[in-house]
C-alpha cells in the first residue's frame, strides 16, 4: 500500500518535472550545443590515435566516438543543477514545505527530476544519435548493441539523480555542497570511464573501478558501443541493479538524516 502510494507520488512528481523541462527550450538547446562541441572536440582527438594502439586495445575510432556519445548523453539528460536546487531549498528553508508532506521528500524530488530526465532523453536522443552517426561516418552499431545500451540508461539515470540528491543534502553538514559535488563528479568521470572506455585503463584500475558505483552510470551502458563480449556487458546490468538498490537505501537514509538534522538544529 505504502509502495503503491509512493509510486503514485513519484509518477505525479515526474509529470510535473516533465512539464517544467518542456518549458525550458533554451536550456535544451544549450545542452545540445555543449554536447555537440564535446563530441566534435574529442572525435578530433580520437582520429589521431595511432591504428596499432587502437588494435592493441580492440577499439575503433567509431566505437570511441559512440562510447563518448553515450556517456555524455547520460550526463546531459540529468542536469547537474539538481544538487544546487536541493542545496538552495535547504539553505532558504524551502525544504520545510517538503518535509511537511506525508510522502518522503526524496520520492518527490527523484520523481520530479526523473520527469525532467525523460524530457531531455526524448528531446535530445534523435539529434545526439544523428550527430554520432555523422561523426562515425555512418558506422552504425548492431541492433543488439543499441538495445543493450538503451536498456542500461534508465538505471544509470536513477543512480545519477539519487547521487545528486545526496550531494545536495550534504550542505547540511558541509555548509556548501559544491566541494562534495566537484570531487564526486570528477571521480565519476575518472572511475566511470567518461571520456574513454575502461579498455584503455591499466588492467588493475579497470578491475578496481567495478568496486565503485561509477561504472554503472557511464561505462556499463556505453560499453555496448565498444564491447565485443556480451557476458561482461550483461553483467553490467547486475552491477547497475546492485548499486541502484544500494543507492535507494542510501537516499532514504539520507532523507531521514536530513529530517532529523533540520528538526534538531534547523537548516
Amino acid at each position: 500500500m505504502r509502495a503503491r502510494h509512493g509510486l503514485g507520488v513519484f509518477g505525479a512528481a515526474a509529470r510535473l518535472g516533465f512539464k517544467q523541462a518542456c518549458a525550458e527550450r533554451l536550456s535544451l538547446l544549450g545542452n545540445f550545443l555543449m554536447y555537440a562541441v564535446i563530441l566534435l572536440a574529442y572525435a578530433g582527438v580520437f582520429r589521431w590515435i595511432p591504428a596499432d594502439v587502437l588494435a592493441a586495445h580492440h577499439v575503433t575510432v567509431e566505437g570511441l566516438i559512440a562510447y563518448l556519445g553515450v556517456t555524455e548523453f547520460v550526463l546531459f539528460c540529468a542536469a547537474t543543477a539538481h544538487y544546487k536546487e536541493m542545496q538552495s531549498d535547504i539553505l532558504s528553508d524551502q525544504i520545510h514545505l517538503e518535509l511537511l508532506r506525508p510522502c518522503p521528500a526524496w520520492v518527490v524530488r527523484l520523481g520530479d527530476w526523473s520527469g525532467q530526465y525523460a524530457v531531455r532523453f526524448f528531446v535530445l536522443f534523435v539529434p545526439c544519435a544523428a550527430l554520432i552517426f555523422f561523426l562515425t561516418e555512418g558506422v552504425v552499431p548492431s541492433v543488439g548493441a543499441v538495445v543493450g545500451m538503451l536498456a542500461g540508461l534508465p538505471l544509470a539515470g536513477l543512480i545519477l539523480l539519487g547521487s545528486y540528491f545526496m550531494v545536495g543534502v550534504s550542505c547540511l553538514w558541509l555548509k556548501q555542497a559544491e566541494p562534495a559535488f566537484w570531487v564526486w563528479q570528477k571521480a565519476l568521470f575518472l572511475l566511470g570511464g567518461l571520456l574513454w572506455p575502461l579498455a584503455l585503463y591499466p588492467d588493475l584500475l579497470a578491475r578496481l573501478v567495478w568496486l565503485t558505483p561509477f561504472p554503472s552510470v557511464l561505462a556499463a551502458p556505453a560499453g555496448w558501443m565498444v564491447g565485443a563480449d556480451v557476458l561482461p556487458l550483461v553483467a553490467g546490468y547486475l552491477h547497475q541493479g546492485f548499486w541502484t538498490l544500494v543507492l535507494l537505501v542510501l537516499v532514504a537514509k539520507t532523507n531521514g538524516a536530513m529530517l532529523r538534522r533540520i528538526q534538531n538544529e534547523g537548516a
Binding site: 595511432p50 594502439v53 586495445h57 571520456l195 574513454w196 584503455l200 591499466p202 584500475l205
Partner: peptide, 11 residues
C-alpha cells in the same frame, strides 16, 4: 588523471 590514463595507453 583521465589524461594520464589516456596517454598511458596512447602515448
Amino acid at each position: 588523471l583521465l589524461w594520464v590514463v589516456f596517454f598511458g595507453a596512447v602515448r
